[in-house]
Computed example of a mutant assay.
Amino acid sequence: MSETVNSFPQTLTIAGTDSGGGAGVMADLKTMQEHRVFSTAVIVAVTAQNTLGVQDFMALPKKLIDEQFASLADDLAIKACKTGMLADAEHVDIVVDNLKKYDFGPIVVDPVMIAKGGAALLTDDAIEVVKRDLLPLATIVTPNLPEAERLTGLSIKSDAAMREAAQQLQAAGTKNIIIKGGHGNTDTVRDYVLLESGKDFWLSAPRVDTVRTHGTGDTLSSAMTAELAKGKDIETAIRIAKDFVEAAIRNTIQVGHGHGPLNHWAYGEEHANA
């Protein structure tokens, strides 16, 4: 067999669909494609949603989820993977078991809990399973401020509190953490990064006045996953992903009547014209 078989960087998203196309598996695949990796998916749940909110969702049976994992492991060479919406405690357990069974490279955990429109996407008991069983498997976890508060029990209203939350997550077993500051109310969005090495730093960007931010977390975590699959170190992957998301928000597209999606091809266009 040719040595070039399976040599191209391959990624995996483990999450739910978004029928509106702006978040979930749909955003993940679009983002990974823009980063020039071959993307695959394990569907955990199917949603009925649009830019106005989530109208309904259904988690898939364990057997079908297990078979998706086995099918990919049998044929492809996944170099990095990410998790997104996992629905409930039972399905978090299913995903954790499969991530322990198969080696899909570095694991990016986007602890999706609440949709932009306010709908709960993860049950309370599932959050506890995420903390206990999924986060220790993660190469990096990417909570926004409300998610970091749920994971740590802290009220995060300051830079010091963001540092404390990241330190708490790392003490609980997560190697690398980025706490996203997009839910703040300042003119500058500040994300805090704490690496396994002990290095920490802030990423800052001007806040863009727009409601078209649906799928921001999915996009950031997917961009990191793609760069890790290509062999980038964790800090480089984070910085590239942050630049990608900033471009996708800055160069808005007009889709839907609510929290609209990002422009996933903006980063490529900006660099092509640079």
Rank of each mutant, 00 (worst) to 15 (best):
residue 185 N to A: 14
residue 211 V to M: 15
residue 211 V to K: 15
residue 209 D to N: 13
residue 195 L to A: 07
residue 211 V to P: 12
residue 194 L to V: 05
residue 187 D to H: 12
residue 202 W to Y: 04
residue 180 K to C: 02
residue 186 T to C: 13
residue 185 N to E: 15
residue 200 D to Y: 06
residue 195 L to V: 05
residue 217 G to V: 05
residue 210 T to M: 08
residue 201 F to Y: 11
residue 181 G to R: 01
residue 188 T to M: 13
residue 191 D to M: 03
residue 198 G to S: 10
residue 187 D to W: 09
residue 192 Y to E: 08
residue 211 V to S: 15
residue 190 R to L: 11
residue 216 T to E: 00
residue 181 G to W: 03
residue 189 V to C: 01
residue 212 R to W: 10
residue 185 N to S: 15
residue 214 H to Y: 00
residue 201 F to Q: 02
residue 201 F to C: 02
residue 178 I to S: 06
residue 203 L to E: 06
residue 195 L to N: 06
residue 208 V to I: 15
residue 190 R to T: 13
residue 212 R to M: 09
residue 216 T to P: 01
residue 198 G to A: 12
residue 199 K to L: 14
residue 204 S to A: 11
residue 193 V to S: 01
residue 181 G to S: 06
residue 183 H to Y: 04
residue 205 A to C: 12
residue 206 P to Y: 08
residue 217 G to Q: 09
residue 178 I to V: 10
residue 191 D to Y: 04
residue 198 G to P: 10
residue 185 N to D: 14
residue 183 H to T: 05
residue 211 V to E: 15
residue 210 T to R: 08
residue 179 I to D: 06
residue 207 R to E: 06
residue 182 G to P: 04
residue 209 D to V: 14
residue 196 E to N: 14
residue 210 T to D: 02
residue 203 L to Q: 02
residue 213 T to R: 06
residue 203 L to A: 02
residue 182 G to I: 02
residue 184 G to F: 00
residue 183 H to F: 06
residue 191 D to Q: 11
residue 196 E to S: 14
residue 212 R to G: 00
residue 207 R to I: 02
residue 192 Y to V: 00
residue 200 D to T: 06
residue 188 T to H: 12
residue 181 G to C: 04
residue 182 G to D: 07
residue 183 H to N: 07
residue 208 V to K: 10
residue 202 W to N: 03
residue 201 F to A: 00
